[in-house]
Nucleic acid binder design. Sequence first.
DNA 1: CGGTATCCCTACTGATACTG
DNA 2: CAGTATCAGTAGGGATACCG
Lengths: 121, 121
Amino acid sequence: MDTDKMRDCPVMATIEVIGGKWKPRILWRLRDGPATFGDLRRYVGVSEKVLSENLAALQRDGIVSRQPLKEGDMVYVEYGYTCYGRSLVPVLDAMGGWGLGHDARKSERSDSDLDDIRRVS
Amino acid sequence: MDTDKMRDCPVMATIEVIGGKWKPRILWRLRDGPATFGDLRRYVGVSEKVLSENLAALQRDGIVSRQPLKEGDMVYVEYGYTCYGRSLVPVLDAMGGWGLGHDARKSERSDSDLDDIRRVS
DNA sequence: CGGTATCCCTACTGATACTG
DNA sequence: CAGTATCAGTAGGGATACCG
């Protein structure tokens, strides 16, 4: 799975925690406050299995906490950032900020991409 | 590939550019200055094919530039950040900084500073 | 509601070999 | 040196069904 070469890249360490296909969306949603399993499922749009796996990984890394709650006879489970997990929010903000700019740039670029198309002599 | 749900998460947009198994290491190496294909191959420790694919993706996104160079009869190709790509460096720094702290935290036995639990109704 | 268990399947990885 | 071509193996995602 991991080559030892990957070990000494701190960016990689972060990506292993917050990266992948679904964790970014989970964490992004959680920035707005705690959410139940069902909330996350609907928001993220992924199967229960995969959501469950991702949440388990985030718990293992100490990023999110899991908290069963009772309201009358209903039982919910709320997920939210741990104190430690909140240290990730500025990083997510930096990444999100760059991502927004990147998307904007991609939109502009479409009209003037003729330079590559030139034929070889 | 992409659910449309993933589209509106700016963190995801960034991860699609710099994420994956090898791009973080490539970009990390390039922070120290340009490198040839062979440099990167040795440093990253991945097959030519995969390295090639990753560099192609980074070029498509405008992050790295490719520049063939002649020195006598030898021909090198140097890769380095584009001007735009350099806008990514602060983001990488943020991620790298957090990753370092995370690794340190994992090393320590952190029984003492658990932050969640309790407060259940 | 909040999950686990199972099975399938594709997309990506990576070794090797070859070209320019 | 700097790549491309080919091909096999596999990890991970998705659908579905089922349990507390």
